[in-house]
């Protein structure tokens, strides 16, 4: 039992509940006839039972006032879910629409970040048992929200991407940050990074080596949601000119090649519209449903109402017993 009280100082009133041990709580009548009666164990028992009721009633009141509760706890359950890190691109271009224009509102055009925000919020709502962490990156990686089952917090982090985006795209540092969320060795379920970006950058050889190692060690699956701007190079495009076939000119293609070469479960989605993005997210949602151990947080349970109810019943009983007492005053 995991009991706690809100105001422990009120428990100092608990000794009051011992009063019925001393006080009888009823009028005593001297009657010479009583001397003649043999001691009656049943009466004695009843007497103490009534006192016990009174003690319990008083204790119940004190505990109720002190705010007795069962502490919140987490219970291990098994469900379907995953450990997910959302890695969000915060570079300037995310504020543009899929067509590469600044959204002007009247055509119902949505910026890429707004579409990402809406769909990711939906995604978080549907993933009941997942642990979700949020990291962002621009020129530098930003740690936003630790791995948590608190969906409100995750949604607040996603909502904050509505503020203007930052500078450039430095994807390797972002990936490093996202991988650092998986500290503990894998126990159950799957681990995935959902990278949401609209562009890519070359990965320097130094980080490349590290990323390869980390992805292997931490057994992370990777989903890349590439929000392609119209007329910009896609991840599957072949360079028209062989001289352009390098990571600087076609970072998207090279990043995709790098991810493929990691030999980890990897899936890229190239989304050119909010609908395509929705499809991709639904896909991830469907795929990542391995059994996972998770901890369900059981909120703290207030027991003061229970205490008060018990006390009330006992007090009613005591009052009724009062009515059964011997009266000496003259009846009308």
């Amino acid at each position: 039992m995991n009991l706690g009280v809100e105001s422990p100082w009120l428990l100092t009133a608990l000794p009051l509940a011992l009063l019925p041990l001393v006080g009888k709580g009823m009028r005593e009548h001297a009657h010479p006839g009583l001397m003649l009666l043999p001691p009656d164990p049943l009466s004695g028992l009843l007497d103490w039972l009534i006192r016990l009721f009174a003690m319990l009633a008083m204790a119940g009141l004190v505990l109720g006032m002190a705010g007795l509760h069962r502490r919140g706890q987490s219970v291990e359950r098994i469900g379907h879910g995953a450990e997910i890190v959302l890695l969000l691109d915060r570079s300037n271009s995310m504020d543009n629409s899929f067509a590469g224009r600044a959204p002007n509102g009247n055509e119902g055009e949505e910026s890429k970040s707004a579409a990402a925000r809406r769909l990711l919020t939906d995604f978080v709502n549907r993933r009941e048992h997942d642990l979700i962490g949020v990291a962002e990156y621009s020129t530098a990686p930003l740690f936003v929200m630790p791995m948590t089952e608190n969906k409100e917090a995750v949604k607040a982090a996603i909502a904050a991407t509505a503020t203007p985006a930052l500078a450039y795209t430095h994807v390797s540092k972002g990936l490093g940050m996202a991988l650092s969320f998986f500290e503990r060795p894998i126990v159950s379920g799957s681990r995935l990074i959902v990278l949401v970006s609209d562009g890519a950058a070359a990965i320097d050889p130094d980080s490349e080596q590290k990323l390869r190692q980390w992805f292997k060690e931490k057994q992370v699956r990777l989903y890349w949601l590439f929000l392609r701007t119209a007329n910009s190079p896609g991840i599957y495009d072949q360079p028209a000119d062989p001289r352009d076939d390098n990571a600087q000119a076609m970072p998207e293609r090279y990043l995709h090649q790098f991810f493929t070469s990691l030999n980890i479960p990897y899936q890229a989605y190239q989304a050119e519209s909010p609908d395509a993005m929705k499809q991709a997210i639904a896909d991830i949602s469907r795929l990542e449903n391995l059994p996972i151990h998770y901890f369900e947080r059981i909120p703290r349970q207030d027991l003061s109402g229970l205490c008060y109810r018990a006390s009330f019943i006992l007090l009613l009983l005591l009052l009724a017993l009062k009515g059964a007492e011997v009266k000496t005053e003259a009846k009308p």
């Binding site: 915060r90 936003v144 630790p146 948590t148 608190n150 607040a156 982090a157 909502a159 904050a160």
Partner: peptide, 17 residues
Amino acid sequence: RSTLLFEPIEVCGSYAE
């Protein structure tokens, strides 16, 4: 300039985060 990491969330329920 500044950036917002997360919108305000309830302090007791999300204390750990």
